[in-house]
Nucleic acid binder design. Structure first.
Lengths: 200, 200, 200, 200
DNA sequence: AATGAATGAGTTTTCATTCAT
DNA sequence: GATGAATGAAAACTCATTCAT
């Protein structure tokens, strides 16, 4: 089991980073939120950057793990992809702060962003694998798999974030009600896009 | 006509903000890039934040203007939407730095992010308008228009950014070659999603 | 003429650095002593290290300049060397704090120490030049010139510092009285050492 | 016999202190070098300062012990002084790190420096004793004994350190070769200085 | 005796902003 | 309109020291 203090710091850090973004997040605030001294963070993490990267990797890993479990429930690539979309949208709603960091910190040339993008790449490969399998067995006819995976990831991400940040205040009940339309919209778009039926 | 110095500052600021993000961007660097003294920026803009907001609004406005001009070339909602997708992708490729800021600075609760999201909202409304019209004349059967607009915007955005940042270094020729697959992928996905043809 | 503020900072810095040594010296104290804001120091100097190096170079340069002027007063290498010794000892008494830094910061592998040693090397070369000339015209018969220069420099340095720091408190009158014995002692030792008269 | 752990700490501390100086030396590094936990150092020493003082005293004591043994080999003050010079130079070459600390930490007003100077004073008294005896039996005619002792100490110290730190990297063979010139230079200078032969 | 996780005061450095010229 | 020297609040990071085990 991981050290207890590290958990405290992780939990506090995800809150603070997501609230303010990497640059605006203050180590003082993370320490305060974790209920430890600032030095304690530096005892466990070499730098703010290292803390951030560790945190993000863990966050994306959770998304990946959930996605993997979800995929095992379904046999066909079609069902698997539908599951992936639903899973990502529900995960984002439940982890809105992480979701925001996912988009806002994924692109850039800083070390932390490079490392972070690698982890996101893992998730994208999961999507690509499903599409490849669908292509193989003839369920899909996707010509550009990486592009398709990015598009799916981007569509699901922005749909949720735009929803979360367009509401004046987070109203759990309303969000809950808005989940099915989001899922339906992205699923619909994605699934049609997988088929070859030329659209003209 | 706008003051010449302001133009110099704007041009420099877009470069620097996009290179480093809002927080890492230094007024010193912007001044140096613009070839003016730091005080001069403050003569024209009240604060870093105001400069940023002005800049982003102008950037998104360019995207909107291009989109509007593009829409006038086509009559049917279908063609207009296809045009919007192509336009956004080409605009992103040409303005990669702005594109990155678009995603990384769009979500959050800071004043500048709220203002920025309003401007992005204008662009999303453009998409929604096309979808609405498509629904009206029966070309589309979209149930959740705002969600669909976000999904389109997100898909097109992430496809390009993932491409730009997955390459070791920016190779204009390679990017140029990759544009058609990106356009085709998003268009295909989007257009099918607009049709009602239930996908099961 | 050098910028006035830089002079203020230099004057304050020499005091503070000499009082506490490089590591113990606080930029806060230097700023306070100079009567400027801490940021002002960083506007003019990139770092504590750069400030220190600049300062030390200036300090040693003063010693060198005085030594050069002194040398011009005398024609023979013997008189020049006697003058150098007296000059160094008097300079050290007048600039005790710099003298302390000279010994305590001269050795080590940090960048600042390397740069500093280069400057001290200039002074040592001055001594070597006199010895070389003395050797040339037959006034001296020194076999190992660099070693001799170091020895002279070390003898004069430590004599003064040991005196300054062995007194409970700095009593200008007492120090003044002790200068001639120090000069005589080192001169005597040095001059005999220059002659070949084998000492057994 | 001293506790074994204390020896480990001492050996590690001399390395680390000499490498970095008192301020830059980290207790963490000493602990790591000693192969003990940081707390263990504090179990045996009240503070970093106490550790340093103990260490320096031991170091200088070694120099003193060697000097004492060396003096017993010779009968005349002249030979004893020659021996002292050779001994100090050889000791410095063998203990370059201690030598550096000797000069860089000897002067200052901190408690540790005061204590350290007392110990160095012991060594200087040894030199003075020899000179006094030389004066008594007529071998020397030194007018200012403390000044002479300081000068000898300073000359021998700086000659070695200047040599050690002027070499790009420590080459044991080259240093070995350079020892005789250093000894000869300082001895020559010192011995002549001890005689009364007025030098003009 | 020994450990090493935890601490928090202290320090360097950064940088948006101001303002006298 | 434009300048750039000066500011000082803020923030990351360090490290000697403590103490429960």
């Amino acid at each position: 089991m991981r050290h207890e203090t590290v958990d405290l710091i992780f939990d506090a850090a995800i809150e603070v980073f997501a609230e303010s973004g990497f640059d605006q997040a203050k180590m003082d605030d993370i320490a305060k939120a974790a209920g430890v001294a600032k030095g304690t963070i530096y005892y466990h993490f070499k730098s703010k950057e290292e803390l951030f990267v560790g945190l993000m990797n863990e966050g994306v890993q959770k998304l990946i793990d959930r996605a993997r479990r979800n995929m095992e429930l379904h046999a066909s690539p079609t069902d698997q992809l539908l599951g992936l979309v639903e899973n990502q949208i529900r995960f984002y709603v439940q982890n809105g702060k992480l979701a925001k960091l996912l988009l806002s910190e994924a692109f850039g040339t800083k070390t932390r962003q490079l490392q972070f993008r690698i982890k996101i790449g893992e998730y994208l490969q999961l999507i690509e694998k499903v599409i490849d399998e669908g292509n193989r067995i003839g369920e899909f006819r996707v010509r550009h798999v990486p592009e398709a995976a990015s598009a799916i990831f981007g569509a699901a991400s922005v749909v949720v974030l735009q929803k979360l940040y367009s509401m004046d205040e987070l109203d759990p009940a309303r969000i809950e009600r808005d989940i099915p339309p989001m899922i339906e919209t992205v699923r619909h778009m994605v699934m049609c896009g997988m088929k070859d039926s030329s659209w003209r």
